[in-house]
Simulated assay, not measured.
Amino acid sequence: MRVNCVGAVVFDDSGRLLLIRRGHPPGEGLWSLPGGRVEPGESDHQALARELLEETGLRVSVVRLAGAVERPGGAPGVVYVIRDYLATPDGDTALTAGDDAADARWVPVPELDRLPMSPGVLDALREWGLIGGRSSATG
């Protein structure tokens, strides 16, 4: 079964990347891009806006599709099809972790390799040209 999901690649005015620490499986305790499942009847943009508000308290505007990845789901035969969108904050950039996010932070790009990241996130961002640097064991 394929599950449609969206994720947000959001940078603030200082060039820091918005990350959430996952509060539930899959990836509990790991840092990742905010996002989640596209609910029935939602467009990708609607799902992205809803997920960002729920997980970080931010309102965003979608700029463009950054790229897409497929990841194994938590159950046998489940595949998450994740479309990540570049987005910009609309107004206030103060964060409030909520929903299934245990924490939310703006992280300077040079510090990303030091965080326990969900597998493949940093590699995808590098492949899409959104951050520089080399791959590491954590990403």
Rank of each mutant, 00 (worst) to 15 (best):
W106F: 06
A87R: 15
D84S: 13
G91S: 07
A102N: 12
P110M: 06
A102G: 15
G91E: 02
A101E: 11
A87W: 03
T88H: 08
A87C: 07
E111I: 00
D92C: 15
R83M: 08
T93I: 13
G91V: 06
P89D: 01
A97E: 04
V109P: 05
I82A: 10
A101S: 10
G91I: 04
A94Y: 07
Y85Q: 09
A94R: 15
A101M: 09
T93Y: 12
D103M: 05
V109Y: 05
T93W: 15
T96Q: 08
V81K: 10
D100E: 12
T88Y: 06
P89C: 01
D99C: 00
W106R: 04
G98S: 09
D99I: 00
W106G: 02
G98Y: 03
D99S: 08
D100V: 06
V107G: 05
P89A: 01
D103V: 06
D84W: 05
D103S: 11
V81Y: 06
D92G: 13
D90P: 00
G91H: 09
A97N: 10
A102E: 14
T96R: 14
L95Q: 02
Y85F: 13
T93V: 15
P110I: 03
R105M: 08
T96K: 11
Y80W: 08
A104E: 00
D90A: 12
A87S: 11
T96Y: 03
T93N: 07
D100G: 04
T88N: 07
Y85S: 09
L95Y: 01
E111Y: 08
P89V: 02
G91M: 07
W106M: 02
L86S: 07
T96H: 09
D84H: 10
T88G: 00
Y85G: 06
E111H: 12
P89R: 01
A104N: 01
G91C: 08
R105N: 13
A87Q: 09
R105F: 08
D92M: 11
P89Q: 04
P89W: 00
I82R: 02
P108F: 15
D99M: 00
V81S: 15
R83N: 14
I82N: 05
A87L: 04
T93R: 14
T96E: 02
L95D: 03
R83H: 09
T88P: 01
L95R: 00
P110W: 07
Y80C: 11
Y85V: 02
G91R: 10
D84I: 06
G98L: 02
E111R: 14
L86G: 05
E111Q: 13
D90Y: 09
T88S: 08
I82L: 11
R105P: 10
G91W: 07
D92F: 13
D103K: 06
Y80N: 15
L95K: 07
G91D: 05
L86C: 09
V109E: 03
P89I: 00
D90H: 11
D103E: 14
G91Q: 09
T96G: 05
A101K: 06
P110N: 10
T93M: 11
T93G: 01
A101I: 07
L95E: 03
P89S: 03
Y85A: 07
D90W: 03
D100A: 00
Y80K: 10
D84L: 02
V81N: 03
D92L: 11
V81M: 10
A97I: 09
